[in-house]
């Protein structure tokens, strides 16, 4: 892979834009219950931050770097978080993803919906973000089946 584009304009734009993009991704994840947004959009926004970091600053000097092999492992962990929330409610006597049975001490029963949906959205976010990064690293030939191409 080439060592990234060395350019004053790109570097400055990166320093202004990418931290904002990452914070906005987390905001979309948290606010997704009340407005437009959710796990998929938040994961894509976060992955755009990491992919731009890899494109502009190069593979070695990237500030927000997640390697391709690590990205595949994190995608599995995200799927596990989603499944763990679902099976926790099954263990405590409910159906799959029935949030009223989550073992969290709350004052009202509707708070459990918020916590359960936040849990599965965090899982979806991690899975989508790292899957996009894994596809990108396979396309650039960093890892994966096109490594020698």
């Amino acid at each position: 892979m080439k060592p990234g584009f060395i350019s004053f304009v790109l570097d400055t734009a990166f320093r202004v834009l990418v931290p904002f993009t990452l914070v906005y991704g987390v905001y979309v994840l948290i606010f997704g219950e009340y407005g437009p947004g959710g796990g998929f959009q938040a994961g894509t926004a976060l992955s755009v931050g990491v992919i731009l970091s890899k494109l502009i600053q190069g593979k070695e000097k990237a500030q927000f770097n997640i390697r391709g092999s690590m990205a595949l492992i994190l995608a599995g962990i995200g799927t596990f978080i989603y499944a763990a929330v679902g099976f926790t409610t099954m263990i405590f006597g409910g159906k799959f993803l029935e949030y009223e049975f989550l073992p969290i001490p709350v004052h009202e029963l509707t708070e459990l919906h918020v916590w359960g949906i936040l849990g599965i959205e965090i899982g979806v976010t991690i899975c989508v973000m790292t899957t996009f990064i894994a596809i990108f690293s396979a396309l650039t030939g960093e890892e994966g089946p096109f490594k020698d191409a």
Binding site: P36, G37, F40, Q41, T44, A45, S47, V48, I51, L55, F132, I135, F136, L139, T140, G141, F146, A149
Partner: peptide, 21 residues
Amino acid sequence: AFTEAVVGVVSTIYLVTALNK
């Protein structure tokens, strides 16, 4: 619309990366 916006950005990055090959 939000989903289309973010996926449009990522698909453009993918196509440019594939064109680089």
